[in-house]
């Protein structure tokens, strides 16, 4: 439960949203990765997904499915559970 309280605190800040709530074409910067699980945090970090990194959302799969994001030259599909733990600030084009 503590983690979700933490997330709410961040979401209360202006402009901060969950990555999972963005749509195709949006660009954003990672503000925080909310990992209750250090393994997940480290795994994402090894892929280069950590705060201050810029990402572009290219597609969202049907039925509320995973997001297709671009980071640098790599593309990743992120499931909802993962994407809702990544907090981002939306960037203007």
């Amino acid at each position: 439960m503590r983690a979700s309280i933490g997330i709410e605190r961040y979401l209360a800040k202006e402009g901060t949203r969950r990555l999972a709530d963005l749509g195709p074409g949006d660009r954003a910067m990672i503000v925080k990765v909310h990992g209750e699980e250090p393994k997940m945090l480290q795994y994402l970090a090894s892929l280069g997904l950590f705060p201050t990194v810029e990402i572009a959302i290219q597609e969202v799969a049907p039925f509320h499915g995973p997001l297709l994001i671009q980071v640098g030259r790599a593309r990743y599909a992120l499931g909802r559970e993962v994407a809702s733990k990544i907090l981002v600030r939306e960037l203007d084009d």
Partner: peptide
């Protein structure tokens, strides 16, 4: 498991 998968060209 949560999906984290690289999408290859």
């Amino acid at each position: 498991t949560g999906l984290i998968m690289e999408m290859f060209p």
